[in-house]
Amino acid sequence: MIHHVKFLRGLFDTKSHFSTLKESEATKGLAWRLIVSALLVGVLTFLSQWFIREDLIQTFVAEGAGMIGYDEASMLVTVVTALSGVFAIGMAILAVLLLALVFWIFYKDVGFKRLFIIFSYFLPIYIVTLLLDLPYYITFGLEHQYSVTSFGYLAHLAFDESFLSFFFGQFNLLIIGCFIVQIFALKVNTAKSTRYIVLTTTLIYLVVMTLIALYTYFSMMQGVQ
């Protein structure tokens, strides 16, 4: 049996779509979809950075304490923007690979390959998130700190603590979407109980989110100093 990788179907008709994956001996359409998705992620990341370019240049000039002129900063930002696009392409595929590796520890019965296929469906969710955020980058520039699909802004208003804002800033369409897709996909591909799936997924997501929030928080603190 061949599993046809169809991202949209996988997102909206998750259960029945992934039920074929368990019995499949081969997949079709994964590679080009993965590559196209990663490229799209790269392009959208590049565009997001490009739209906040002016703000970034101003920040570089300011933080350069008079030692970096506008032209140097502009060149630097262009290079950083271009690199961020390339970096995003690599990171998109690497993230899928890493997630598959992490969950493989808990779902040996599913197998690494199937887990990789399941997590590849996260890329279209990320693309949608990036697309939704793009107009906000254009409109608000660097003020757009968290995804518009996240609880980051609400947390920013509710708590006087940057770490919590960064943490809740990750509760966005990407995480919630990935969580739902993953739960349904794993449910039909593993013999483990639903409770086990929810528990392991929630825990790993929380750990990853906390680590990212901590990294962002300490990066910001260093920037302030």
Binding site: E143, V148, T149, Y153, L157
Partner: peptide, 15 residues
Amino acid sequence: LMVGNSYILSEGMTT
């Protein structure tokens, strides 16, 4: 959520 966040951003409440 997006409408709420848009409002927060447009009002500059996080600035």
